[in-house]
Design a binder for these strands. Structure first.
Lengths: 126, 126
DNA sequence: CATCATGCTTGCAAAATGAAAGCATGATGC
DNA sequence: GCATCATGCTTTCATTTTGCAAGCATGATG
């Protein structure tokens, strides 16, 4: 991992926060073009590295690796033993991660209403 | 403005879209650390350039200028004549912009619940 | 006409992004 | 048991974005 070299935060005291505003804090963690797409994929049932890269947006592998690392750090995601017996562990949303659903839901609704040509994509589990 | 040089989209056909997913599309427009904070400030009653720079996160002026330009382009914001008689026009949310409220609300709720030390800030209008 | 406030733009160094290639590890084939 | 392959990353590096600081245009003010 290319962050967290010599710093050990993560448990609670996220230091580099721009302000106490909960929206700003959320954006400190999720404010980029990829993080919430990874969370979206997790909600759609994606668990393995390859599955995230297969999404239509085509996330670069170094970005995916970095984002999964940050999501692990912030407790939105955990790694669990893969159910299909694979040697590689699977990524799974925590309760904290699952509670991001309302944000994604609001974004989906807004996009569908205001941006022509958008449509919900078929997922692994409808 | 440093974008939209030689391209005329804006009316509808946002070309550079990564996928038809409404979440991805929303993130194409709002997926960065500042855009939604500008929208938050607009919701709190901010209308003038100086007011946005006064928020605790301290947005750089070049970023603010760029984001206001993008929000104007995407129809989330309009410029109207200032009510206080100032020569400078004020920025105001459109209906499309006001409908971003559920996204900000969900982020605020999530931040308050999961990130210690966050709290809603006093705004111009409660 | 000098000074100031507002609303930007410009310059530039540092950080993030992203395409492509490289690498480690375990399973598979023979 | 050794080459091959798939998965899951890491590294490299050119390009883009960020963000601090300074500059600049315009209209009000003294």
């Amino acid at each position: 991992m290319n962050r967290a070299v010599g710093e050990k935060e993560g448990v609670k005291g996220a230091s580099g926060r721009r302000s106490p505003c909960p929206v700003a804090c959320c954006l400190d963690l999720m404010g980029d073009r990829w993080t919430l797409l990874v969370v979206r994929d997790l909600m759609m049932g994606a668990e393995r590295f390859k599955e995230f890269t297969a999404s239509p947006e085509g996330i670069p592998t170094n970005i995916l690796s970095d984002r999964l690392g940050r999501l692990l750090e912030s407790g939105v995601v955990v790694q669990v033993a893969a159910a299909d017996g694979s040697r590689h562990p699977a990524y799974r949303l925590t309760e904290k991660g699952r509670e991001l659903i309302p944000i994604l839901g609001a974004m989906r609704d807004w996009g569908l209403k205001w941006e022509e040509g958008t449509r919900v994509m078929a997922g692994r589990e409808g």
